[in-house]
């Protein structure tokens, strides 16, 4: 058990070091950082000074180590395009992405579990088949088309909700939130649905399949025979036992929500980290790209590790001696 945990953590650290190497090589070899940072009017002395200042005259491993040191301290250099520290720009943009991701995650989990349970209990009803067919279409539509479709219906035709931006934001202790104003909440609706729809259908189909499996078990029949109400049987006995795989998948999907936020943020011009990343690619702003890569890898690797460890903690069958993989 302990052996497994240590090995998993070691693996995660190795992955992060490799990603760090990729990010560092991008910074070091894609274009010349000196060229990008100094303008047209520069002297040889300027170049030498900046080269020494950035440590570019040091051997490669030393530079890599220094890059990692800086990255751990949250120092990712200066954006080529905006001329400000990358960490500052990202910190400014992060609340928008995190709020969007949190709200879509909540939407996906609540509606996904709710609809999953509903379609499992009323498996032959017409409402269930409508929902299941709808979910198939939801899975095959690309995210950006869903966003455009929602904009067309709710912003262009019905004129109910805004199609871009965050609305008014309030500053609460350095965190700019859109959750406290009416226009902020309205602006959040369409992006949150766009981003969460795919995860919602995924969770729904998983809950439905797991519920159908559990409802066939003997203890469910026994609970019914004991005269327990349908509600107690469905929610206390059946749903509880479907939650282990649901938690795993939901955890892993959390990472993709943040990655797919790039697409949603571009469709809705949502001023978050994803839009920043896309703009960085368009203008080849390497420090921003490298920083984004590092941040998102820490997030992904961390979530993966956490889900794996949680899995072992929840499911006693996996706590085998030594041979756990």
């Amino acid at each position: 058990m302990l052996n497994y945990i240590i090995r998993r953590i070691f693996q995660s650290v190795v992955v992060l070091l490799i990603v760090g190497l990729v990010a560092f090589s991008m910074f070091r070899f894609v274009g010349d950082p000196i060229d990008n940072m100094l303008g047209q009017e520069r002297t040889q002395a300027d170049i030498e000074r900046l080269r020494a200042q950035l440590g570019l005259d040091q051997p490669f491993p030393v530079q890599y180590w220094r890059f990692l040191e800086n990255a751990v301290q949250g120092n990712f250099g200066v954006s080529y395009r905006q001329g400000r520290p990358v960490a500052e720009i990202i910190a400014e943009r992060a609340p928008a992405t995190l709020e969007l991701a949190a709200v879509s995650g909540l939407f996906a989990i609540v509606l996904g579990i709710g609809l999953g349970v509903f379609t499992a209990i009323r498996r032959d009803g017409w409402a269930s088949s409508v929902i299941m067919t709808g979910s198939l279409i939801g899975v095959s539509l690309p995210t950006f088309l869903i966003g455009i479709l929602l904009i067309y219906v709710f912003s262009v035709e019905l004129d109910l909700l805004p199609s871009f931006g965050r609305g008014d934001v309030v500053d609460v202790g350095g965190w700019s939130t859109g959750l406290l104003t009416a226009s902020g909440l309205k602006a959040l609706v369409l992006p949150a649905i766009t981003l969460g729809l795919y995860q919602m259908t995924l969770i729904m189909r998983l809950v439905r399949a797991e519920m159908l499996e559990v409802l066939r078990q003997d203890y469910i029949n026994f609970a019914r025979a004991r005269g327990l109400s349908e509600r107690v049987v469905n929610f206390r006995h059946a749903l509880k036992n479907t939650l282990v795989p649901v938690i795993t998948v939901t955890g892993l999907q959390l990472g993709s929500i943040i990655a797919f936020a790039i697409i949603t943020e571009t469709v809705f011009q949502w001023p978050g980290v994803g839009l920043l990343f896309i703009n960085a690619i368009q203008f080849v702003d390497i420090p921003v790209m490298a920083a984004y890569l590092m941040l998102i890898s820490v997030m992904f690797v961390g979530i993966n590790l956490l889900v794996d460890l949680l899995y072992v903690a929840i499911d006693p069958r996996l706590r085998g001696e030594g041979n756990a993989t």
């Binding site: 992955v15 990655a259 797919f260 690619i281 790209m289 690797v301």
Partner: peptide
């Protein structure tokens, strides 16, 4: 395994960005 940890579209974007820089 490492590559599979990240969504394919993100990997593609990154490669696109790096190649563009070159």
């Amino acid at each position: 395994d490492v590559q599979l940890t990240f969504p394919a579209i993100l990997v593609a974007m990154l490669i696109f960005g790096i190649a563009k820089g070159f």
